[in-house]
Each structure stands twice: as structure tokens, then as C-alpha cells.
Design a protein around this nucleic acid. Structure first.
Lengths: 198, 198
DNA sequence: CTCCTTCTATGGCGATCACCATAGTATGTC
DNA sequence: GACATACTATGGTGATCGCCATAGAAGGAG
């Protein structure tokens, strides 16, 4: 029983895009279906639990791709915390520029509308953050950070990246990411006792 | 021609509260008026430009109080960047706990729904961030930071605080703020060339 | 008293919301 | 041919959205 159309996948992709730009509540099903070209008639065939299910699948997709990006950068900068942070900032900034500063982070957008979400969806968002943070923490540990410090640095970095995205959207400029990278280069990501590059 | 009731002020306060918890689009006028006890009939008398105007006044209120908080902390920790950062983290974390992790940042919530906002409102949000950042940057400068580094550190800190709020809401825990304070204490907020406390 | 301002009550505008019931088409397998 | 699965079209549900027109109550100023 193979799929015959890609209407389902297109709906998920459109939902991810629009949720990132406008937020969850502000994005109507009508708009999602119109943008994706998916037919209206089959929506509840593909997503019996409605908008909630659509959001769940959208965030699964988003989290997976985000973690893949982080893992790639981690592999590219093994043992080097400074380059790791720098490259994350660069990548995030490049994404923002590529979307003309329209895209926010899906996890963040959903997190800021918590009362509109059910428990299942909330849990997925929370786990998305936890998993991302753990990838970063693990990288820091392979750089010689003590476990506690690796966790703290990872949590702080993930938080900073989220906030930077918000501000970059407003300013329509990647300057915040550059500031973040600069500060991290000088002090933040340096392993204990070892001076930074500057 | 003095005001006779406080219905207007109560509506603004309720709007600020609900926008922080639920976001802009997810909060209806009906809910705002119900919660504030303000009568429905007089809404467009007090706010002729409707929901937009209400949001503008709410954010003015929010930004003013936020800047007051930052200025107070700055005055309490003159010349001491480490204690400044630490106290900001403490204060923000305490706010979160006090609201049982329900309140987000109004500026951030609005920034994540940009397409729903008109230009005027967007501009106010952007200025709120810019002004907050400048207060932080000025404090860092009085701590002996070079101007460029003070600006970078301020931008990074403001971004990190925003992200921390989002994550703290999800985790229902102030742990992120503690991580942020810890990392800053060790490396971040230290003036050039001077080692951190730890 | 009249007049004006400040504020509120009521009711409804058109539009959109998420959701769903019903029916029908297309493409398989047997 | 029969039959099932995969998918879509249509149309409408009740509820809620922001907004507004009309009317009137309350109170001070002249």
C-alpha cells in the first residue's frame, strides 16, 4: 500500500515553513493547504488528529534536520570548541540571511504559544531542545571540558542561539550572531585553563 | 478632563499578561476584556485603532518596566560586570519562578509573530531590544570594556537571556539561567585581560 | 436647566477558524 | 468483472475573530 501522492509531505513542509514565519495560532489550515497545493478534501484523511498532528510531524522533521546540522558541525570540528561555536553561529546566520530573516525557530515559536499546545506536542518541543543541548554538551566534553561545565556551556549556547535568532529577525541583520561568536571566541568556549585565541 | 475609570489601564495590563503567556494572535479581545473586567462596549472608545493600539501601549509599558529593572541592577553593581550579569540572571529567574514559568517576554513573543504586526508595532519591539542592549553595553563600558567588546557582550547577553526564558518555560526550571550565570562568571563578563573569579 | 464629554450596553457585521460528513474518483489486486 | 484501498471535492457545522454602529447612562460646566 504505497503512497500515491506527495500531498501529505507537502502539507508538512508548508506547515513547518509557515509556523516558523508566523507562529502556530496565526497559521490557518486553509493557508497551509493553499500554499502547499495540497487539496482540502483529504486533509483529515492524512491527518486524522488535525492541526495538532500536523504540528507534531512538522516538529519531528524540524528537530531531525536541526540535529543533523549540529552533528555535522560537531564532526567537522572535533576537539575544537572554538571552531565548533564559530561554525554554528555562521551556519545559523547564513540560514537567516538565506530566508531574508523571515524564518524563526519552530521549537521556539511553539514554545512561546504553550497554552495552545497539548501535552504531547509540548513534550516534543522540550525534547527537541534537550536533544540539541546534549549534542553540544557532548562535543564540549570531547574538547576536554568537565561534564558539569560542558552542560552549562551547552545550555547557555543553545539559549543564546535561540535569542539571537529572534533579534536577528527584528534587526534584519546577522550582527547578533557575529557578536555571539566573538564573545565565545574570546572567553566562552575556551576549555578550562586554556586561553582563548585572542 | 480627567479619567473616570481605570478600565483602560486594566485592559492594557491584561493584554500584557495574556500576550506574554499565549502570544498575540492567540489572545482575543474578548478574553482580554473578560479577564480585565473592562466592559466590551467602550473598547473602541479607549483604543480607536483597536488591537494594534492596545499592543502598542502594552509593549510601551513592558519595555519601560524592563529597562527600569536593568537600570536598577546596573546601579546596584557599578563597575562590577560579573555581579551585574549574575544579578540579572537571578532576577529573571526569580520572575519566572514567581509566575510559575508561565510568563514569556512580550518583546520576544511579538517578534515571533512579525507578519501579524504592523510597521509601527514592529519598530517598537525592535527599539525595546536596542534600548535594553544599550543599557547593558553602557554598564560594561563603565567596567572598563572596550566599546566594541562591550557592545558584543551586551548583544550576546541580551540574546542569551531571551533564549533562556523560552527554555526555562519549557523545562519549568531556572536551570538555564544558572548555567548562563555560571558560564558568564567564569569567562564571559570578565574585563579584558583580567581573569574571572573562578 | 442645557450642553458636552466620558464611558458603557447591545447587537450584529463579514470573515475566518478547526473540523467533519457525504459522496465520488483513481488505481490497484484478484 | 468485483472489490478494496488511496485519495479528493464539496459544502457546511458552530464558534470565534476583530471591528463597529447605535443608543444611552453618568457627571461636570455653563
Amino acid at each position: 500500500m504505497p503512497r500515491k501522492t506527495d500531498a501529505r509531505a507537502r502539507a508538512i513542509a508548508a506547515a513547518e515553513r509557515l509556523f516558523r514565519i508566523q507562529g502556530y495560532t496565526a497559521t490557518g489550515l486553509t493557508q497551509i493547504l493553499a500554499e502547499s497545493g495540497a487539496p482540502k478534501g483529504s486533509f483529515y484523511f492524512h491527518f486524522p488528529r488535525g492541526k495538532t498532528q500536523l504540528a507534531e510531524e512538522a516538529i519531528d522533521r524540524y528537530v531531525a534536520s536541526r540535529m543533523a546540522v549540529l552533528r555535522n558541525i560537531s564532526a567537522d570540528t572535533t576537539g575544537d570548541a572554538l571552531r565548533f561555536v564559530q561554525q554554528i553561529c555562521d551556519t545559523f546566520a547564513a540560514e537567516m540571511i538565506a530566508s531574508d530573516f523571515q524564518y524563526g525557530c519552530l521549537m521556539q515559536n511553539l514554545a512561546n504559544e504553550l497554552p495552545a499546545l497539548d501535552a504531547e506536542l509540548t513534550e516534543r518541543v522540550a525534547r527537541g531542545f534537550a536533544d540539541s543541548t546534549e549534542i553540544v554538551a557532548e562535543h564540549f566534553m570531547t574538547c576536554g571540558f568537565a561534564p558539569a561545565r560542558a552542560s552549562s556551556a551547552a545550555a547557555a549556547l543553545v539559549a543564546a542561539l535561540e535569542g539571537a535568532r529572534t533579534i536577528a529577525r527584528l534587526e534584519r541583520s546577522p550582527a547578533v550572531f557575529e557578536a555571539l561568536a566573538e564573545i565565545s571566541l574570546q572567553r566562552w568556549a575556551a576549555p578550562e585553563g586554556r586561553p582563548g585565541l585572542v
